[in-house]
Design a protein around this nucleic acid. Structure first.
Lengths: 331, 331
DNA sequence: AGCCGGAGATAAACCGGTTTAGCTAGGGTC
DNA sequence: GACCCTAGCTAAACCGGTTTATCTCCGGCT
């Protein structure tokens, strides 16, 4: 099966290639009669312009890229990214090039390659690091990009983010309102910018708050919880940086005979089926909408708009059975 | 920042465009001395051929496609697809075009478009339906494809699959060996080919086995379980088609006062964090390796090999606390 | 009548590669 | 010395679009 080209359309409509191009792209230079004839021929032949050829004439590649760095470890955030991707595509006409790599070096190399190969018009940057080298790379290359989820402003790049600082503060305030004073935090990877933001917010609102580093795995959540609960003055509430660690923490608490929520309150960052099942109070965000917003931002940049920072709505706290007033078992 | 083209290399090396092309692609027609010089110049200029331009010269698009159909919700399988994708890419040099759509019609349309636009060299087909229209579409278009996970042979397409029939049989045999006779199954979407295969295997080895249709959601798992357990002769074992339904089922059992595993054994298809946490016996497969195998198969087809059917290793049953001998509580 | 301007179309260049035809120089044959 | 091959390279066509320069025709204005 051979697909029709612009030449075929031109021959069938009895005009030149150039006229067909003008007609199809709705540009002036052809009469309405000719345009109508060309469009009719094109649709009857099932014509679809070749993105490849179009991209060659310095136009767009009609694709954007997303690179996910996943070291060979237990994930747990998959639902997040899938919803993010689905949301992005709901607001995208271009195709999405997705690649999963295992190191930051590969990621950088991939952006370079995509740029050199003229494969993408722009990219999404996720999992922003503290002083992330990708930000500079993008301006060096002149590759349009949108920072997804990295609070604050990044060089000349547009960004879409949720206010982790405010969210953490609201979680802590909620716990304080329940009477908690000894609150601990089991954090995510300390290299990530949002981890630092949450750390800062946590430290600012909790006096002598303990922060234990984790890496989103169940093992990390379990060992951190064990360490916290077996200390001299165990916390009465723990905020975890993801669902997997929170669930693991809840299990450790149970195995140590610490009752939830009467003796220990637990909050998970990011809601999921895991939290629903474990009846954990969780910070829930609309990831699909977040992705859609990111896609719109990238679309605007590609259309020539100057980069802006868009703040997403604050995640909402979904209260379930894992949080309660200090020392009081809930009904 | 302007990226170097083949013309720049040619000028710098003092040869023609054609010679550069021959030299870079390791083809004969240039002397070794010239080739070395061209390569040196190219690497010093950081040259990367434009896939776009290359694709135009009837060569390859250097990309393959994957479309996921996700109705508004009903997820739960995200981990599976992410691991699959990561596995695919571990064996792919081409880029992966990923699109999430919400209907089968959009999916078909997307394949047509990708083909017409010369965007991909081939595609992966997942979630095969009973008598799937995509199979015929691929041969009509002449678009190379690999069926991922659809047992059996499909027209002229290559396929990579795990033997769901044998796997289901082994699960049932295991349950029988524990003394179970009244075994039920909470199935997945009946439009999917693998659901039918599992149904067949189940019906063949379980006398009077009850099959309840589900859609992978927690609600479906819960209501199916409620129906099964409140019937006249409730089953002593239930096999669920995914982790989310199994966990929901376990919860319903608990709320009805049915003890697991002494009164009811539970097996989940596909292992996950959810199963680990819920201590559910699960059928576990190496999805990453499965994806890698699929990618190799597609690569072979693109290289001109005749399509073959590759059977993946059988999923392994990971026995946890949710299965036991009928009427005996485990230690 | 002569001139100008714009609409409507075409031819041709261009994007960055690949591929083919053709040219040249050098060596071997008889 | 005439002839033929072949290695090594160049020029040019081609892929399927976009874009620019150019050309023609026609109507309006002075």
């Amino acid at each position: 099966m051979k697909r029709p080209t612009i030449k075929d359309i031109a021959a069938a409509a009895g005009v030149s290639k150039g006229a067909v191009s003008l007609a199809l792209n709705g540009r002036s230079g052809v009469s309405e009669a000719t345009r109508a004839r060309v469009l009719a021929v094109a649709s009857s032949l099932g014509y679809r312009p070749s993105v490849t050829a179009r991209a060659l004439s310095s136009a767009s590649a009609d694709a954007v890229g997303l690179v996910l760095v996943r070291p060979p470890r237990a994930l747990g955030d998959e639902a997040f990214f899938f919803q993010l991707i689905a949301g992005m595509q709901s607001e995208m006409s271009a195709a999405l090039l997705l690649q999963v790599v295992s190191s930051r070096e590969e990621e950088i190399e991939l952006y370079r390659r995509w740029w050199a190969e003229h494969r993408v018009d722009g990219v999404f940057l996720v999992d922003l690091l503290v002083s992330d080298p990708r930000v500079e790379l993008m301006s060096d290359l002149g590759l349009p990009a949108v920072v997804v989820g990295g609070a604050g402003h990044h060089g000349s790049l547009a960004s879409v983010w949720a206010d982790d600082y405010a969210a953490m503060t609201s979680v802590v305030e909620y716990l304080k309102s329940l009477g908690h004073r000894r609150i601990a935090r089991v954090a995510g990877l300390s290299s990530l910018l949002h981890t630092v933001r949450r750390d800062q917010a946590f430290s600012a609102s909790v006096v002598d708050g303990v922060i234990v580093a984790g890496d989103y795995t169940a093992e990390a959540g379990a060992s951190a919880t064990r360490a916290l609960l077996s200390g001299g003055e165990p916390p009465t509430a723990i905020v975890y940086d993801n669902d997997v660690m929170a669930v693991a923490g809840a299990e450790v608490a149970a195995s140590l005979g610490v009752a939830v929520p009467s003796e220990l309150s637990i909050v998970a960052w990011d809601d999921s089926v895991l939290c629903q099942h474990g009846r954990l109070t969780a910070l829930s965000r609309d990831t699909f909408a977040f992705g859609a917003r990111a896609a719109r931002a990238l679309g605007a940049v590609l259309a020539g708009a100057s980069p802006t920072d868009v703040e997403d709505v604050l995640p909402a706290l979904v209260v379930r059975g894992s949080t309660g007033v200090v020392g009081v078992s809930r009904p």
